[in-house]
């Protein structure tokens, strides 16, 4: 089964939860894979000594415009939903802005003058690692300046396969990259902080997940700050609260130094094991 770990914004402890869940399951000898889908800023690898196994480039096709064949009809620019064709006919300027292009192919379809061909552009890489314990970790990494990580994320999830439990450390936010990641998950674990900001982000994530018919549960991180707004919301909406983390100085220190709290604290190991067991027993078989 696939479990996505997500949060409305970055820095709420999503990576902390994903890496520790992975560590606990691999520590028990279960078949588990971690996929870092936060392609803009992947960092799961920082927590595991790992050896690189393979690397593949993910490309898409972007248009190349032959100005000599162009009849200045403007169709390509009109058809492009992403403002990626810069078109000023009066100045005889037509230009593809490659890092805005999503490789959808609409412009070449729209052109009736055979003025558009396509060329491959590398969007990012999918890299497979094996941790020192022998467990697979797959990283999606977007190229600097590229804007659309979706293809890279999809390729990374595919690379991870279907074996055992696959943990998807999801991109923050609720836009396309988030949706494409959780879409492939059987269960979504949302990490939030008990503050008004945390609540408003959480609400957005929950609403998005509901339109997608996804099962979800919540972990409240930094439970020692903030108010009871998140808890009240979960009760009203009948969303399971799976756990509460008091993000004390020992956790903060070990995290900032790139260590895993589940290597250092038996209580936290038990905590994450309990959450994993609950999700797997209620929502999957562990082996798909």
């Amino acid at each position: 089964m696939k479990i996505a770990v997500a949060s409305g914004k970055g820095g709420t402890g999503k990576t902390f939860v994903a890496t520790n869940l992975f560590n606990v399951l691999s520590g028990r000898g279960e078949r588990v894979t971690l996929v870092d889908c936060d392609a803009d800023a992947p960092d799961d690898l920082l927590f595991f000594p790992a050896e690189k196994i393979s690397e593949t480039e993910v490309t898409h096709q972007v248009p190349v415009i032959n100005k000599d064949a162009c009849t200045w009809c403007g169709r390509c620019s009109n058809w492009c939903n992403y403002n990626a064709i810069f078109y000023v006919p009066t100045a005889k300027v037509i230009e593809v802005i490659e890092n805005l292009c999503h490789g959808c192919g609409a412009c070449s379809f729209a052109c009736n003058s055979d003025a558009i061909t396509e060329k491959p552009v590398v969007l990012g890489t999918v890299t497979s690692f094996r941790t020192d314990r022998g467990y697979p970790l797959v990283e999606a990494r977007l190229r600097v300046n590229e804007m659309s990580p979706v293809r890279v994320i999809k390729a990374a999830i595919k690379e991870a396969g279907e074996d055992g439990v696959v943990i998807l450390d999801s991109p923050p936010g609720t836009s396309c990259p988030f949706i494409q990641t959780v879409d492939r998950a059987d269960y979504v674990l949302l990490v939030t902080e008990p503050t008004p900001f945390g609540l408003s982000d959480l609400r957005q994530s929950v609403e998005t997940l509901r339109t997608m018919n996804k099962q979800c549960g919540v972990i409240i991180n930094r439970a020692d700050i903030g108010d009871s707004g998140v808890k009240n919301y979960l009760r009203e909406e009948q969303i399971p609260l799976l756990g509460v983390i008091n993000y004390g100085t020992d956790i903060a220190r070990s995290y900032s130094e790139g260590r895993l709290i589940t290597e250092e604290s038996e209580i936290m190991t038990g905590f994450f094991a309990g959450i994993a067991d609950k999700i797997i027993s209620e929502h999957g078989t562990g082996s798909n």
């Binding site: 620019s77 992403y82 403002n83 990626a84 810069f86 000023v88 802005i97 836009s175």
Partner: peptide, 11 residues
């Protein structure tokens, strides 16, 4: 616009 507001405005 989600992306490309600058170039579209120049256009």
């Amino acid at each position: 616009a989600e992306e490309g507001a600058g170039p579209a405005s120049v256009q």
